[in-house]
Design a protein around this nucleic acid. Structure first.
Lengths: 150, 150
DNA sequence: GGACAGTACATGCACGTGCATTCAATGCAA
DNA sequence: TTGCATTGAATGCACGTGCATGTACTGTCC
């Protein structure tokens, strides 16, 4: 007879899902916001910029190559293709990466981390880890640290 | 002698944090993207719009009041004050909520869910739960469902 | 009462994002 | 070889967001 109640209730399963989702949302918001603020303030990097630099470092170390294709990078960062393209343009303008045409497939773009790029990454990493340790451990506590709720 | 290695390595703790963060990022991206796409396509609601409607429904049910102050709503949605203000303006323009001056404190705004607003929420909720069930359970699997990676 | 700091919300502005489109290069088929 | 669908990446555009600011109102201290 539940259909008589216009305010349908969540099943226990759904309630759990919603709780999980809200916790995830809160953690994401807190971490992303703090990360953006801190990295931006101190190193001129956004969260995604840092992420891309990190993938670049890892990718190069893993394959021993000095460069990585944008197409390889794309699936690992959660950005649309256009957003990634512009992000890379920003990094290049900042002198942190350099774009070069890929010889084997001239549609592709090879990304190389510049010396400045690697340095910037190495400098920023401790702060990045610090933020994660701060926001990812323990209970989410009270409703904490929304954007502009310093 | 770790300082001789220019590529500092993460401590085991940090590595775990990073893994946790990446999982969270992936889940958030997948869920938020799908949620936005589905709710937007079928009910003309963004993820945050739905969230606000839901808080409104819950808040009213909890307090038995027909209205909620924006200030009460703010800390529960992970949006800046300005973003929330505009989101509410959108909801009002769509006829889903109505804004009224708060008598006890004339700076405040009382939000009321319209009949259309409640209906829209009730209609959209099953899809919302469906998406959560789809993206939140189990391992994150392969790098899945970035925006525009249909 | 009058001045003033603080709060609640709205708005101008710059910016990052996604979608749709465009352009170049590739692979395949006829 | 020519023609055509496909892929990699860049770009025009609209839109949602955060920051800084503005406006209205409240409470307090004098």
């Amino acid at each position: 007879m539940a259909e008589l109640d216009s305010r349908a209730l969540d099943s226990p399963t759904d309630a759990g899902l919603v709780a999980q989702w809200r916790d995830l949302l809160a953690r994401h918001a807190a971490t992303a916001c703090l990360l953006d603020r801190e990295l931006g303030e101190k190193y001129g990097l956004g969260m995604s910029e840092f992420e891309v630099l990190e993938r670049l470092v890892e990718g190069c170390e893993a394959e021993g190559l000095p460069a990585l294709r944008v197409a390889e990078l794309a699936p690992t960062v959660h950005l649309s293709q256009s957003a990634l393209s512009r992000l890379i343009a920003r990094l290049e303008k900042a002198g942190l990466v350099s774009r070069a045409m890929c010889e084997s497939d001239r549609r592709g773009i090879m990304l190389t981390l510049t010396e400045a790029g690697r340095e910037r990454y190495e400098q920023a990493r401790p702060l990045h880890r610090e933020v994660l340790a701060l926001t990812l451990v323990g209970e989410i506590g009270p409703v904490c640290s929304e954007p502009s709720t310093d």
